[in-house]
Nucleic acid binder design. Structure first.
Lengths: 358, 358
DNA sequence: GAAACCTCTGCAATCGATTGCATGAGTTTC
DNA sequence: GAAACTCATGCAATCGATTGCAGAGGTTTC
């Protein structure tokens, strides 16, 4: 059992190798600037002393932290945790640590993020919450240049930040078209929380699919929802209060879809027999609920990897572009058991709604 | 839009307040040691200059990082992410940052953790992986005293570390007893991965429940599994290969239970009609799969909160105990739809197995 | 053979906050 | 009224690594 007496410093290495600390520092950071023999002596000294660089000292001198901050609305949500996994992998492979900050309370989120930067704890930020106030973020500038920041998954409208996200609107259109192709004519949508960018984008795709198929958009079939299972179950209650019910529903995400299916079942309706349901995300559990969920798969690992990689590029000045980049990854349709052909009895009402050849 | 010219330092504050930097430092860290008027002048100066403490400088001087490291086997797993949520909350309320490290590759995990400490990036460690090699951890000592470290959820046998976990063995016994009370006599178990402490503890509880009810433990009913859904589905394949099948199964966790139920369904068996299944953990999705899963709820938020709190206590020297503490939280039985009475046809075989009044 | 140029290394300042020790002013004690 | 004590503050060293500048030694160029 090796007990370390006292953490060795660069001084100890220098003494052992009989060189100055400057040379040790250079040997470790820019090996090519040091002669081969000296380099060998220093490697040996490092090995013998068990030296590890003191990150605080380097941070202080270089004004970098080799750490990124990931600000999430909800770590507990499996949607984010898979992305976080990919972020951690990419960051650590490039020598960066990952600090997580959860559920920034709305009010002072800008201030808290600003503190992380100003206190020199982090070099960059991956922001998963588009609802952050622009004014609060504008504080995030250091020495007149904006702080390295990438908005992931969401987007802050009209704000000059890099973004990495998926093709929400197109994917929502694709999901809705799938229902149309199955013969559904009365199609509803479980919305996300009001004010959220994803809510708007996915609803827009939904509407576009209906319109380009010449189907009506019934306002009462846009059910209020959110990203949680409970919201889906609540949407089912709204669904049962409807005079006329859709035969298919596109949900803003998998969790609300699953909650909705649970609600259907509680009221004795079958999915997909009575109502087809499409989700969004393809969480791990989507394949394991009953019926297995048809959904749009977001490439979550790729989102995390690309976002972290791009952020570190920005931090290290390898991406010089002043102009914000927008990286859009595409989603994939995964057809499982929660969608099926429109029920036969649907034919009659459909005619009432559909003017012959519009 | 306020752009910061240059990050203000304690020097700037001192100049503005016309005191020395020593006084500013004291005013911020030990307000009672500074006269009231000076304190007021300094607060004003801090406000005007927009000063934020440089954490690297403080860390260098004080040899603390005000950051804890959370080493997880798999952040992407929702079981851990909820705990991480609680950890982040507790830590940030006490002024600590949370660094995450995922899936430490087996080989060098000790070395990587040691680096985090030696490089002065973190003050303490929450370790979620009991499979770490003792020798690797023994390296984690600084200045002859062991590094602040708490093992969460799992446990490293015979190792002198604090632990925070749940009553795995008792909870497993309780879950199995539930099946026995429902009249089941042929009861199987989906094991966790070999070598894991949780696997052993939960299996031990399972066996104890059977034995104290006078039921036989059939070795072939101990199905090989792991913590993932796929492992549960694979266990279902083993299940169908059995000459004689259990009517109830206790799974090592919710995910394997859900995978197992999926497997049952693929082979045309009904849960709980043909086979009752109990899980372990009570993940968010347990209530939303079909049938809703009966399970032992682990108090995950409490685990995270208590572990983080205890770790920070140790770091700050508020827990002086040299002896390792073991905090055990209790689990709660949650009965849902995946368990039901033993099927009637089960009566005959049961008699074959059960000597009248043993 | 002098000037110009490289290569390798060391000196010493620097990053920003903390803290042991000293000091001066004011108060209490006997 | 001197000694002892308290309180508020400042001085300056310190934490450990990085880096601009300079110099020593060697090589190339004309």
């Amino acid at each position: 059992m090796t007990l370390v007496k006292k953490t060795p410093t660069i001084q100890d290495v220098a003494r052992y190798a009989e060189v100055s600390t400057a040379t040790v520092s250079r040997a470790l950071s820019f090996p090519e600037r040091v002669s081969e023999q000296t380099r060998a002596r220093i490697s040996e000294a490092v090995r013998v002393t068990g030296y590890t660089l003191n990150q605080s000292a380097r941070s202080l001198r270089q004004r970098t932290a080799r750490t990124i901050l990931v600000a999430l609305p909800d770590i507990g949500n499996p949607f984010f945790s898979v992305i976080l996994d990919a972020i951690e992998r990419e960051a650590s492979s490039r020598g960066y640590g990952v600090l997580v900050a959860n559920r920034f309370p709305g009010g002072d989120s800008g201030a808290r993020m600003r503190d992380y930067f100003m206190s020199n704890r982090v070099d960059g930020l991956l922001l998963f919450d588009g609802s952050v106030d622009l004014d609060q973020l504008s504080v995030l500038a250091r020495d007149r240049t904006p702080v390295p920041l990438i908005v992931v998954c969401e987007e802050i409208p009209h704000a000059p930040f890099h973004t990495v996200k998926t093709d929400n609107s197109y994917a929502a259109e694709r999901a809705t078209r799938h229902l149309i192709q199955l013969g559904h004519r009365r199609i509803g949508h479980i919305r996300g929380p009001a004010g959220n960018v994803l809510t708007a984008e996915r609803e827009a795709g939904f509407v576009r699919a209906l319109e380009s198929a010449g189907l009506p958009v019934q306002p009462e079939w846009l059910l209020q929802g959110a990203f949680a299972m409970e919201a889906g179950t609540a949407a089912a209650a709204q669904f049962f209060a409807l005079a006329e019910r859709p035969t298919a529903v596109f949900a803003v995400n998998d969790e609300s879809a699953i909650g909705f299916i649970t609600g259907l079942r509680q009221h004795g309706l079958d999915c997909p027999g009575d109502v087809s349901v499409v989700g969004f995300d393809d969480l791990a559990l989507a394949a394991h609920v009953w019926p297995p969920l048809t959904t749009m798969r977001q490439p979550r690992a790729a989102l995390g990897r690309i976002a972290a990689g791009a952020l570190i590029d920005v931090i290290e000045g390898e991406r010089h572009s002043r102009l914000p980049m927008h990286m859009v990854l595409s989603s994939e349709m995964i057809v499982r058991g929660s969608t099926g052909p429109a029920p036969a009895l649907e034919a009659a009402p459909a005619e009432t709604f559909l003017p012959a050849a519009q």
